[in-house]
C-alpha cells in the first residue's frame, strides 16, 4: 500500500486543480463555442448526408436512413451512463463537488437521448421487422437503462440534504453500470431479433463505406452536441450553486437570515 496513497494524492490534486467548480466556469466558457459550433455543423452535415446523399440499402431501402439518428442516440445513451458512473466514482472516492453537479446535469440529457434511441428504434423496427417492440435481450436491456436514468434523476433530487441525494444517486449509477456490458454484448451472448453490431473493434465494418462515413459524421456531431449541452447545463448548475450559497451565507452578520435571503431570491426570480 506504499504506492497507493501517492497515486491517490496526485489523482486527487489533479482533479481539484483542473475541475473545481470555480475553475470550471472559466474552462467551460472557453470550451463552449468549440463544442457548440462543430456539433451543429457536423450534425447537420451527417444527417443531410444520410437523408439525401447516402445510398439506400439493398434490402431495407430508404428505411436504413433511420440508422443515422438511431445509432448515435444508442451510442450516447450508453456513453452518457458511463459518464454518470465515472462521476459516481469521483463523487464517492474523492468527494468531488463538480462530479456531483455533473451527475445532476448528465442524467436528464442521457434519459432524453435514451428515449429517442428507443423511439427511433421502434420507428425502424415497425417497417423492417414488422413489429414496434419485442422483448429481446438488446431492447430490454436498453429499456432497463432508460429506467436507470429515470431512477437516477429522481434519486439525486429526492433528499432535502443534497449531499445524501448525491451519495445515493452515485451508488445507483455505479450499480446500474452493470447494464452497460449487458447492452453491448446482448446481441452476441443471446440470439436476439436485433442484429449484431456492424462496427466492431476487431473486424472490418460490415457496412458499405458510403453509409459508414455519414454515420461517423453524425455520431461525432451528436456526441459533441451532447457534450455542449452538458457543459452549458453544468455551467448553469455551478452558477445556481453559487447563487444559493451567496443567498444563504450569513455574510452581513448574524441578522441576515434565511427569510431575507429567500425574499431576495424571489425578487431576482421575478
Amino acid at each position: 500500500m506504499n504506492a497507493s496513497p501517492t497515486f491517490m494524492d496526485r489523482a486527487g490534486a489533479l482533479f481539484h486543480r483542473y475541475a473545481n467548480p470555480g475553475r470550471f466556469l472559466k474552462l467551460g466558457a472557453a470550451l463552449q463555442p468549440w463544442l457548440t459550433w462543430p456539433a451543429i455543423v457536423l450534425t447537420l452535415c451527417g444527417l443531410g448526408w444520410g437523408l439525401f446523399f447516402s445510398p439506400a440499402d439493398w434490402q431495407q431501402g430508404d428505411s436504413v436512413r433511420i440508422m443515422y439518428v438511431h445509432v448515435p442516440c444508442a451510442w450516447l445513451a450508453s456513453s452518457g451512463y458511463a459518464a454518470l458512473a465515472v462521476c459516481a466514482v469521483l463523487s464517492l472516492v474523492w468527494r468531488h463537488p463538480l462530479a456531483d453537479l455533473a451527475a445532476v446535469e448528465i442524467g436528464p440529457v442521457g434519459a432524453c437521448v435514451t428515449a429517442t434511441c428507443l423511439a427511433t428504434g421502434s420507428l425502424w423496427g415497425k417497417p423492417m421487422w414488422g413489429t414496434w417492440w419485442v422483448w429481446d435481450a438488446r431492447l430490454t436491456s436498453v429499456l432497463v437503462l432508460f429506467f436507470l436514468y429515470l431512477g437516477h434523476i429522481a434519486l439525486i433530487r429526492a433528499f432535502d440534504d443534497p449531499q445524501r441525494g448525491y451519495r445515493a444517486a452515485a451508488i445507483l449509477a455505479l450499480a446500474g453500470a452493470v447494464d452497460l456490458p449487458i447492452i453491448k454484448f446482448s446481441v452476441q451472448w443471446w440470439n436476439t431479433l436485433h442484429q449484431p453490431d456492424s462496427i466492431t473493434l476487431t473486424g472490418a465494418p460490415t457496412m458499405s463505406h458510403a453509409m459508414l462515413w455519414p454515420l461517423l459524421v453524425s455520431t461525432l456531431g451528436f456526441t459533441l452536441g451532447f457534450a455542449a449541452i452538458v457543459v452549458a447545463r453544468l455551467r448553469a448548475g455551478v452558477m445556481e450553486h453559487r447563487i444559493r450559497s451567496l443567498l444563504t451565507s450569513p455574510r452581513r452578520g448574524t441578522s441576515v437570515n434565511a427569510t431575507l435571503a429567500e425574499s431576495g431570491a424571489q425578487e431576482l426570480a421575478v
Binding site: 439493398w58 431495407q60 414488422g130 453509409m211
Partner: peptide
C-alpha cells in the same frame, strides 16, 4: 401467428448487392 423479419448487420447499397 406472427412472422418477424430479422435483418442482419450487413448494410450495402443496392448497386453493390446487384
Amino acid at each position: 401467428s406472427e412472422v418477424l423479419a430479422k435483418h442482419d448487420e450487413t448494410y450495402m447499397p443496392k448497386e453493390v448487392a446487384e
